[in-house]
Each structure stands twice: as structure tokens, then as C-alpha cells.
Design a protein around this nucleic acid. Sequence first.
DNA 1: GCGCCGCTCCGCACACCGTACGGATTCCGC
DNA 2: GCGGAATCCGTACGGTGTGCGGAGCGGCGC
Lengths: 270, 270
Amino acid sequence: MAARKEQIPSVWTRPQRARRRDQPALSREQIVAEAIAILDADGIEALSMRRLGTRLNAGATSMYTHVANKEELIELVVDEVLGELRLPDTTALRGSGSSGAAGSGSVGSGSADPDAWRAAITECADGVRATVLRHPWLVSVLGDVGLAYLGPNMMRFSEAMLTVLEEAGFELLEANDAMGVVMAFVVGMATSEASWLTTIARHGTDEQAWVEQLLPAAKEAARGHPRLHRLYLMQQSLDASATREKGFANGIRLVLDGIELAHRARTENR
Amino acid sequence: MAARKEQIPSVWTRPQRARRRDQPALSREQIVAEAIAILDADGIEALSMRRLGTRLNAGATSMYTHVANKEELIELVVDEVLGELRLPDTTALRGSGSSGAAGSGSVGSGSADPDAWRAAITECADGVRATVLRHPWLVSVLGDVGLAYLGPNMMRFSEAMLTVLEEAGFELLEANDAMGVVMAFVVGMATSEASWLTTIARHGTDEQAWVEQLLPAAKEAARGHPRLHRLYLMQQSLDASATREKGFANGIRLVLDGIELAHRARTENR
DNA sequence: GCGCCGCTCCGCACACCGTACGGATTCCGC
DNA sequence: GCGGAATCCGTACGGTGTGCGGAGCGGCGC
């Protein structure tokens, strides 16, 4: 109350701690964004409420007015990251309106490329893989959060994939099954790739060097397992990163083959 | 040194803290087993070195003479659980050697059932899924540990799958790719199932009730996503558990179709 | 028999964690 | 101008993983 015109710098010359609405200072978006920054930089075990608070010039517990608890924060973070996914473009899928467009054959005005759905789904799969590899901590969180089933970005993405498949002639439940298979494959593959890359990064070497470094242990562990032994020897001379890439591309192609086969069998019987 | 024959119960009547070799009291196997018991009973966040120690009538830090740190413990635990996997039996794969018994196969002395590898791999996949569902905490750990690449039980299992595929005519690298695809699918699918079941268990209801309870929120979240909305409505009247089961069986069949297709294309060109 | 070595186990301590709680501060509608 | 609501934070509690030094014991060389 008193001493309104103090100018002398002293303990009482408070550094105007008073800023409540000068900047909102804290918002859910900011918190989530900073959390992602921490995660990307230092991985999952580096994310603590205290560190997060400090990074935002805030107290540790201040986050709890914007976020119920850490688990909810992580759900938000996951869905936020899923927002990076580009949706497949559906323009090539169907030329005409919503009419049956009878023959999947190549005729008919505005008829779509019958393989367009494969390209679109592949695009989705590649996108998810890229996102996971860009944020490898995702996989150590998927087991707890599932796939943030109801997050808006997850919903958006699912709807888009279902759209692709439905427009390609899949029935809804069939489309859902197909999406499930694709996503399972992608998540499984990305999980293994991400954890592989994480361990490499933790040891500070690059992929090829790590393979060489690991080889003796691998050979030792493969004692009594001739096929694994042969396999390790063969892989030694392969470019690890390229092999991963090819493995994924090959796998998704193969999964789509299976889906296409089942779909054809289904539509023939109709 | 003194007072060797104390009998009076008192503070000094030590409850014979002296037992060093009466029972080994602590061994790596025991530690791992107890850790699994904790994990199965109360999930991943219930596993702490302190609790583990207490359960074994030991101090918290005593575990560190048998295990480097918690991470290593978890690696051991994962591989231990993988030991539950039954290996596919390979007798049906090739007729020769163990007396073909012709059996289901059509003709040819000792010729094997050409579809036997599919059955064997399906068996593997089902086994992994069952193990994961029996120990749902596995998935919240897979992202960190990868697949415990070099654990003996993991090696055993991988070698067995490779054997199945090689005996079915796959080349080693081809077999490895196929195994990768199958495992990716299985892990992805099981991850989603396990985390789903875990959240359900955490809320103390059963699957069907949880679906109903979740439905309003799901419908709300599906606003503006007509396909998802329709999907939720349709799934409402389906038995959730049976749907999961069917989804997995269907998915693995489909993946194997893809693999078989690629394999056939490969062998034709040879 | 004796003394010592090494292995095992443990109490203590440290730094850190998530978060409940209550008090301070500021903003907004009246 | 004032009262309530929203926001932020200091403090505290009970928990975590684990480094360290010491204590008890079995087995080994003498």
C-alpha cells in the first residue's frame, strides 16, 4: 500500500512478478507443444512435470490447471503428433458421383484407377511410419494409450482411410478390418524400427557401426541356431537403413495384396 | 562374539538375521519370477525394486547384485515370458526324415502338405498373441526393449519360424522378411488389443459393458465423421471379444495370403 | 585351526518423481 | 469498487531408481 514511487533497486523493488494476463503464459497448446519438444529432444524418460514447468517459466504444478494429470497430457501429446499426418487425397478414387461405377475396369467416364486405393493406403502407411520415426518415443507410449482412440486427429485419419476404402468398393466393416490389418502392421513394424533406432541413438553411434559392434554378441547368441547365424552373416554386408526401408515397403505391398485378394473373393461371391 | 547362548527374547535376540547360505534367498530366476508375478497381478507401474525386494524378503538394493539395473531386469523378464511360447512342430513340413506319413497330402512319397507352413506360422502367431494377452504389460515395454533381440527364448522362437519357412521352400532372406511381416502384424494387433483390455480392466468392468459405456463419447467424437459414426453403431450390436478374435484370425490369414503370393511369384521366375 | 578374501545382502542417502493442498495474485462482470 | 473466479505457485508427502560403505558369511590358502 505505502511506498508507491520506489525506484531504488532493492529487495522491495520487486521485479514485477506481477504478470497474469500480460501473456497468457500457460495454455494447453503451449504445454503440449513444449512437451513434444522435450520428448523429441531427450526421449520419454526426460519428460517430467517439473522440467516441463521450468521450460515454460512456470511452477511444476501449474500445469495441472490445464491438464488433469500426466497421463492425459500424454494422450494430448499423442493426438497432437498424429496431427502431422497428411490425409490421403481421394480425388483419384472415384470419377463419378456416388454411383456404383460398375466395372472396376478401366472404362467409363471419369472411372477411377482401380489401384488408386492401394496408393492412397500406402501413402497413409508411409506417413504413420515417418511420424513414428520422427517421434520414436511414441512407441513407448502406445502400449499405455492404445491409439488415443478418440483424439480428433486420430478420428480424422481413420475416417480418411475408411473413405478411401469405401470409395474403392469396400463395405464399411470390410474396410474397417482392412484398416485394422494395415495399422497393425505399420505399428508393429514402426515399433521395432523405432526402438532399434532409439537404442542406437542412446549409444551415440550410427546404424552401420552399431550393427558391426553388435555382431559378435549376435553371433555368440546365435550359437546353436544355424539359420540365425547365416542370417546375421548375410545381413552384415547389407545397408541396414536401406534394408529397413525395403522391408517396410515390401511388407505393406504384401499386406495390400492379401487385402485385395480377400476383397476380390468377396465381391465375386456377391 | 560374546553371548553365544542367549535365549531371552529381547532386542538382542536377533531374529537370526544370520542366514547367508541357509537358503540362497535370492537368485536371478527367483527375482525374475517374482517380477512377473507382480506384473501379471498389478501391471507395469506396480513393479518397483522396493516392492520386488519386499516380496522376496529382501532389501530393495539387494537385487542389484543379480541384475545390473531395472532395465536389464525387464529384458530378462521379457525373454522369460517369451519362453512360454510353444515352438511350431515341423514334422508335417517335409515328409522325408521323420517318416512322411503322407497323410493329408495328396501323393508323392513323403511329400509334405504344401499348406503346412501356413498352419505352423499361424500357430506361432496365435501363440504370441495369447502370450501378450496373458501378460498385457508386455506391450508397454516392447517400445523400450524392442524385442529383446538376443534373449535365448527369442532366438529359439525366431529360429523355429525360420526353420518352418525354409523347409517350406523359402530362401533365408525371404523367410526373414516373411517372419518380419508376420511378427509386425502380430505385435501391432496384440498391442492394440492389450492396451484396450488394460484400460477396461483398470475401470473394473467387462468388455461389453465398457463398449456401451464408451459409446456416447465415441459418437460425440465421431461428429463430422459419418463413416466412423456408422461403424460405431454397427459395432454396438457385435460381440466385442469375438470380433477381436475374428479380426486377428482374418488378419493373419490375409497376411499369409500376401506372403504366399509373393513366394509363388518368386519361385515361378526361378 | 586360523585368517583373510570375496560374495552377498542391506541401511542410508541422494536426487528426482507425480501431485494434493492452500494461499497469493490478478482479471472480469457487475 | 467489489466479489468471485481463474490462475499460478510454494510446500509437502509418499514414492521412485540406485550409489555407497559396511556387515555377515562361506570357502580357500596356510
